[in-house]
């Protein structure tokens, strides 16, 4: 916790719907150290993408504080935000809808450079775009092609080139590989890793796939229904999961060995509604270990150094392995 590039404190986003308040993100705290990767894991609809958009202030938070690079950007408006956004970028999940179909590869990649007036001469811009394309592994001959002529992996490389064009300090990757084939997933992950080393980037890596985040993250935060239920260094989380939800998620990762028998913790039912959630633990309805105490919402507490968990029964369940 020496030099955090990003700190998020008590970040909350409630959406008004006609059925009540939708608690998309409910008071989460995150810390990301410079040059590190924080994995944000959770199932669909748990608010992880909303969190990403909140941090970039694409949506205004309801309450909370976002401190980026030592500056509190929570109340920054257009002009000041534009300055800050040079240092924060976003890689989108869907490489098909995140690229304008009417723009060529070079136009897409050069967009942030032109919008921020970094380079003025068109030959300089062309040089820079070519350089960026080489960096992310796109052949120069694709300079004038349109996105629809390319496959998913190449398209995602375009998105990555656009994200690093401004040499940002921090990138939010919103499920950057979930729309890609497995073979291409590895390529893109390696590219992201390499860029992090070269450019000293810090990532927030949003995903629903724990096996992806394992190789990629320094810290992992597990989200459930707008809350962070467990946060720990990656290794610690995989060795010592405390929250029943984390245990269940981990048990679902396939092990590629013949003689290992998979013992899965199954979660019953489906994610409950984020609209007007009650007082109980958010996971209580699906939890196999639910007791009376779980009718009160647990706080995210430091269980062991750097390992935070929000479960009343974390201590009791510690020894329990999967299969129960």
């Amino acid at each position: 916790m020496m030099d955090p590039i990003l700190e998020v404190k008590n970040l909350t986003k409630h959406f008004k719907t006609k059925y009540g308040l939708l608690h998309a993100v409910d008071g989460i705290d995150l810390t990301l150290e410079r040059g590190k990767t924080l994995g944000l894991v959770g199932e669909s609809g748990c608010g992880k993408s909303t969190t990403g958009r909140l941090i970039l202030k694409l949506i205004e938070p309801t309450t909370g504080q976002i401190i980026f690079d030592g500056k509190d950007i929570t109340n920054y408006k257009n002009r000041a935000m534009k300055e800050i956004r040079r240092d924060m970028m976003f890689i989108f999940q869907d490489p098909y809808s995140s690229l304008d179909p009417r723009k060529t590869v070079s136009q897409i990649i050069s967009e942030p450079i032109i919008a921020n007036n970094i380079l003025k001469k068109s030959s300089d811009i062309e040089d820079r775009v070519t350089e960026l394309m080489t960096t992310v592994g796109l052949a120069e001959r694709l300079y004038n092609t349109y996105p629809h002529e390319l496959d998913g992996g190449r398209r995602q490389r375009i998105g990555i080139a656009r994200a690093i064009a401004m040499e940002p300090k921090f990138i939010i990757c919103d499920e950057p590989v979930s729309a890609l084939d497995v073979s291409i997933q590895a390529q893109i992950l390696n590219l992201l890793k390499e860029l992090q080393r070269k450019l000293g980037l810090s990532y927030i890596f949003i995903t629903h796939d724990l096996s992806v985040v394992n190789h990629f993250s320094d810290d992992i935060a597990v989200m459930y229904l707008g809350k962070i239920v467990e946060r720990a260094p990656a290794e610690e989380l995989f060795l010592n999961p405390l929250h029943p939800y984390t245990k269940a998620l981990l048990s679902a990762i396939p092990v590629p060995e013949l003689d290992v028998k998979m013992e899965r913790i199954l979660i019953k039912g489906e994610i409950s509604s984020p609209i007007n959630p009650g007082e109980e633990c958010r996971f209580a309805k699906r939890c196999y270990f639910c007791q009376d105490i779980c009718m009160k919402e647990p706080k995210l507490l430091e269980y062991s150094p750097q390992h935070f968990v929000a479960c009343h029964r974390a201590e009791e369940l510690k020894g329990l392995e999967g299969g129960l």
Partner: peptide, 14 residues
Amino acid sequence: DEEYIEAARVSGVG
């Protein structure tokens, strides 16, 4: 609501 509009906004386009 397309993502490339959001992407442009992130890139600092007015």
